[in-house]
Simulated assay, not measured.
Amino acid sequence: MRYGTGTALAAALLLGALPASAESDPDMSARHVEAAEAAAGQELAHVLGHCKKIGKSFTIPHDKGHEMLERLIGKGDLRSTAIFDNLVFLGTSWTTTWAIRTSDGIILIDALNNEDEAKRFIEGGLREVGLDPADIKKIVVSHAHGDHYGGAAYLKEKYGAEIIMSDTDWQELEKDELQFDDPLWGRPPKRDVSVSDGDTVTLGDTTITLLETPGHTPGTLSTIVPLTDDGTAHKAIIWGGNGLNFGPNAAQFVQMIESQRRLAAMAGEEGFDVFLSNHKTLDATYAKLDAMEAGSDGNPFVIGTGQVERAFTAMSHCVAAQLASFDPEAVPTH
């Protein structure tokens, strides 16, 4: 299967104002915010983060980034939960790892911030739900930021797991200077398995599909995962990176919008009825876990293809609203 063409650290860090620009179009921004809110409705209000504070871009102040990262990492707590027959949430209050259980071992989507988190939340979380960390065979890293690759090198060294990332983002990690770095993150893994848009990864009875959805980083991967819930089939799309933490770079904003529009269009075609993220705020993971624990009627993570399409549509309008605040001519109209 082939297809044509992060909320990462920036989602919780300080907002820096964009340069004042005569090109700002407040009316266009307002129209896109209105369209985003209409698409989201009350059920999906959690996807509207980028519609807030229009006219500012998420940036990381170098003098405060480490302190903020320290606080974010300190928010971790162990809340591992099997949310489908073959999918386990291993995330913290900030960053998420998803564990896909197959007939021949475990595929991880992302690896948290560092070795300590990998030990506590990935290894500990797997044991909490009765799985063996030694069964970790493959690690898909959604993009080249330390809060997603930080524990990968440790898990590879301990269990021999393959580390899989887009060739584009491997190149990002091989640059002399990383986009972001901090001593609180594990060191970037060495190049292992490279994939490109539409490639599949198979382990045992499970095949996942990796889509390059650039914007957050040049080679961000979003993942299609087949799931079952008490034997009933579902299909998840795990959005790979959502933060606008690259400043007023119109080309990357456009990439993000086009990636989101692409997945909105694919929702019905591919049957995506589960929307997941690698940060729990974007997909409301904790609220849904609370609902499950309270005995919800049905699996709250199954939202239907219509809501998945609306989620990506709403997000694309929010990004367009931000782009219109500094370069309205760049906002895609098709």
Rank of each mutant, 00 (worst) to 15 (best):
L72Q: 13
Q252W: 09
D85S: 05
T217L: 11
L210G: 05
T81A: 12
G91T: 04
L87F: 12
A144D: 10
D27A: 15
L173N: 01
D132L: 07
L244E: 02
A284E: 05
E23V: 00
H334K: 14
A36Q: 07
R101P: 00
E70C: 10
Y154D: 02
V195I: 14
L13W: 10
Q252M: 14
A8V: 00
G243H: 12
G240W: 03
G198Y: 01
V33M: 08
N86Y: 11
P218K: 08
G41H: 05
A251F: 13
P300V: 12
L276I: 11
D199Y: 09
E37V: 06
G186R: 02
S325G: 07
V141H: 10
Y159P: 08
I122W: 02
Y159L: 02
V140P: 01
Q307T: 07
I122F: 03
R262N: 07
E23K: 02
Q179N: 04
T228S: 15
M315L: 08
D169H: 02
Y286N: 09
G241R: 09
G215T: 02
S296A: 15
G160T: 08
A39D: 12
L276C: 08
E23I: 01
D167I: 08
L178M: 03
R187D: 11
T5C: 10
L155K: 09
G247K: 05
D110T: 15
Q255H: 04
A152V: 13
S142H: 06
T209G: 01
M68N: 10
I100V: 15
V33K: 08
Y3H: 13
L15D: 06
E123M: 13
G130W: 15
V225M: 01
L48P: 05
A321H: 03
H46S: 14
S277T: 12
K288Q: 11
T81C: 12
D199G: 07
A324D: 01
S296G: 06
P61T: 07
S57A: 15
H317G: 08
T305K: 13
T59N: 12
K137G: 07
G304N: 03
A111Y: 00
D273I: 09
D283P: 01
F84D: 00
G240I: 10
L276M: 11
Q171W: 02
K119L: 15
W170R: 04
A251N: 12
A320S: 14
A40K: 01
P226L: 01
I208E: 07
H50V: 05
E123I: 14
T305D: 11
T59M: 14
R79W: 09
V225I: 15
L78D: 05
A39E: 15
M165R: 09
F84C: 00
S24L: 09
L90C: 05
S277G: 12
G219D: 06
